[in-house]
Design a protein around this nucleic acid. Structure first.
Lengths: 174, 174
DNA sequence: AGGGCTTGGTTCAAGTTTGAAACAAACTTA
DNA sequence: TAAGTTTGTTTCAAACTTGAACCAAGCCCT
């Protein structure tokens, strides 16, 4: 089958996108590295945990939220644990499982660092977009993400149905 | 000064964007790694060189195009050189300079690999967007990129004016 | 010419990412 | 219930990235 090359418009979009996200990620990483001594992903781990009632999540669930491999998460959490920002606990109902818990110190660090991070995201991204563009951005990337979830995750994966949950926060009562 | 937090819309957009680009980059990297044994950046280096008449570019110019650090480029080019896809030459007019040249073998590899890569970009991105969205994507990321260039590169940096070019492809006549 | 600053590029150590392999607990099924 | 499979997580080596430090070579000024 002959290749469907990119149209000129698509090429321009692709180039702009690649350049843009490299610059943006770079700025974000640099800012966080300087003011918090951690890269973007590590911040996202803290932020993700803080979003959740119990501030705890099983490794696999966390990896899935973050769209990263379990292996990558293991390494990152180990580092954060060494810094005292996250703690690992065993899952009570599944002895294989382990749970990442945001410590109080982690929460404090997050609170201190968040404003600077938000400011960077604003300066690099949102301050340059109109409200319509913000909507377009969401729409576009939601579609992209959905595309991958469908394939990989299996459409409306059975385990996502409440009565078949394969995992739980591993806290409180079963 | 109190932090201007993200609005709910901005938060949704930001989350979608982060998830989307991680998934997309991942897919692209995986595809290229499998079929070409190289990550996305390395492919981009070859592609960039191939785009240029003489297929050669000074390291700094290449780094600037790719939006990466010189150090990162040095490492990448060394690897590609080891694989015989790129060759380094000395710049004739500036003895400090060195030039990356796409070899014939590199060109061949690129031609073999390009279709698969394009297919991945299509499947992951463009096949999911309407033509309008492609335009929006370009617009949005062009603005983002421009934002960074202005600051870092200095607005309409003097060296970008033709009569003050600080670098040339280092080929042909001065 | 001779300092002193800038630019182009590489090097080095420390940190991160990758993917495959290893393990162990849980589930399935004969 | 033992054997085989799947699932949750870690480990390991190889590759990649980062930023600071370094070395030349060009540039500027007197």
């Amino acid at each position: 089958m002959t290749t469907r090359w990119l149209t000129p418009e698509e090429q321009r979009a692709w180039r702009a996108y690649v350049a843009g996200y490299l610059l943006l990620e770079d700025a974000i990483d640099r800012q966080l590295q300087q003011e918090a001594g951690m890269p973007h992903l590590y911040y996202s781990i803290l932020a993700n945990l803080s979003d959740i009632p119990e501030r705890r999540l099983r490794m696999t669930d966390l990896a899935e939220r973050l769209k990263i491999t379990r292996s990558r998460l293991t390494y990152a959490v180990s580092r954060l644990e060494k810094d005292g920002l996250v703690r690992r606990e065993d899952c009570r109902w599944d002895k294989r499982g382990s749970v990442a818990v945001l410590t109080d110190e982690g929460m404090t660090v997050l609170e201190n660092v968040a404003p600077g991070h938000v400011e960077t995201v604003r300066a690099g991204l949102f301050d340059r977009l109109t409200p319509e563009q913000v909507g377009q951005l969401e729409e576009i990337f939601t579609q992209i993400a959905r595309g991958f979830q469908e394939k990989d995750g299996g459409e409306t994966a059975p385990e996502d149905l409440p009565w078949r949950r394969r995992s739980s926060p591993c806290s409180g009562t079963p």
